[in-house]
Simulated assay, not measured.
Amino acid sequence: MSKITFNTERCKGCELCVSVCPKKIIVLSPEINAQGFHPATLSDPGKCTGCGFCFYICPDLAVTVVRERRAANE
């Protein structure tokens, strides 16, 4: 299981993360942050695989990926 979070105040809505998401679940929020940008958000968090593409491409370090490790017997 993985969880992606976006620091909405750091995000400038460049859409680089949107373009690399293999599941196409990253979208720009209709909300506007303090900088006047539409930050990235997930449309369907349950479909996220935690691949990390969004994390690696983000120039503003606005993406955090948390992956849970599976137990050895799973």
Rank of each mutant, 00 (worst) to 15 (best):
P30K: 14
L61N: 15
V65R: 14
N73C: 10
N73R: 08
V27Q: 13
P22Q: 03
T49A: 06
K12P: 05
L16S: 12
K12A: 01
V65Q: 12
S19C: 10
L61P: 14
T8V: 12
C54L: 10
I4H: 04
V63K: 04
E9P: 03
C11F: 00
A71V: 03
P30Q: 14
A71K: 14
I26E: 00
K47I: 01
C48P: 09
C48Y: 01
S43Y: 01
L16T: 04
P45Q: 04
E9T: 02
Q35W: 05
A34F: 07
A62C: 08
N33I: 06
S29G: 14
K3Y: 02
M1N: 10
N33Q: 03
D60F: 13
C11I: 06
L42R: 08
S2T: 07
V63H: 02
A34H: 11
V18F: 00
K24C: 11
V66K: 15
C48S: 11
S19D: 14
K23E: 09
F6S: 07
S43D: 00
K3L: 14
F37Y: 15
E15P: 01
P22M: 07
C58M: 03
L16F: 11
P30F: 06
F6W: 03
T49R: 12
R70P: 06
G46M: 10
V20K: 05
M1G: 12
A34L: 12
T5I: 07
C21I: 01
D60K: 07
F55G: 02
K12V: 07
N73Q: 09
E31M: 09
T8Y: 05
T41H: 10
L42C: 13
R69K: 10
E68H: 09
V20S: 06
L28A: 04
R69N: 11
F53K: 13
T49K: 14
C11T: 02
D44S: 15
P30R: 14
I26T: 02
C54Y: 05
S29Y: 13
L28Q: 15
K47H: 01
Q35R: 09
A71I: 08
K47G: 04
I26H: 06
I57P: 07
A40G: 05
C11R: 03
S19Q: 13
I25D: 00
A71C: 09
M1F: 07
R10C: 02
T41W: 00
T49G: 11
C21M: 08
P45F: 04
C48L: 10
C58Y: 00
I57M: 07
E68A: 12
L61W: 12
P45E: 00
S19R: 14
D44N: 15
C21R: 06
G46A: 15
N33C: 03
R67M: 12
A72Q: 11
E9Q: 04
